[in-house]
Amino acid sequence: MRKMIPALLAALLLAACSSTPKTESGGAKIEDRTPGSGATTDGNAGKIQTITPDATNGSPLAILKDPKSILSKRSIYFDFDSYVIKQEHQALVEAHGKFLREHPELKVLIQGNADERGSREYNLALGQKRAEAVRKALTLLGAKDAQIEAVSLGEEKPKNAGHDEAAWAENRRGDILYSGEF
């Protein structure tokens, strides 16, 4: 049974791959023109499947999923028009910086986000500023440049789809994702 797990995971990974859009450079084809008409990928095409093949006991990655570990917390929230990591998130950032320093083989993607108000491109830049703040903090804690990519999703992927201050506060955020999680 234990031997079957890697095979199952491989199959899952393949399945995950096939549900992502086949839109590589050069091969841009016009996909289904009719939203929701028979395209089998429509149902879950927007979801990012998270698969961590080696998250077994003893792997360094297990702790990232352990709800008792601070490393399972990945979101840093920012005030309006601010790019400063607040005191309440310092411990979280420090834990990830230390973890990355101790595991130089690991890589992270930091996704910055902004609330929906105003220009999409300017919000993309604001999200980048937040991702960049997290990237800098992790680097100061000993993570290597090559381990980290800071990107922005701007206002395009809101965690909270609402249109009030509570929703906006939830969307002014940086998320730390480890390899295999994005």
């Binding site: 992502t20 859009p21 839109t23 841009a28 016009i30 996909e31 289904d32 023109r33 939203p35 990928t41 095409a45 927007g46 999409r120 491109e121 993309l124 999703l153 701007g154 395009e156 992927k157």
Partner: peptide
């Protein structure tokens, strides 16, 4: 109207 690109992820600008 013709669809040039269809994607599950955002397209902007």
């Amino acid at each position: 109207a013709q669809t040039a690109l269809s994607s599950p992820e955002p397209i902007i600008s």
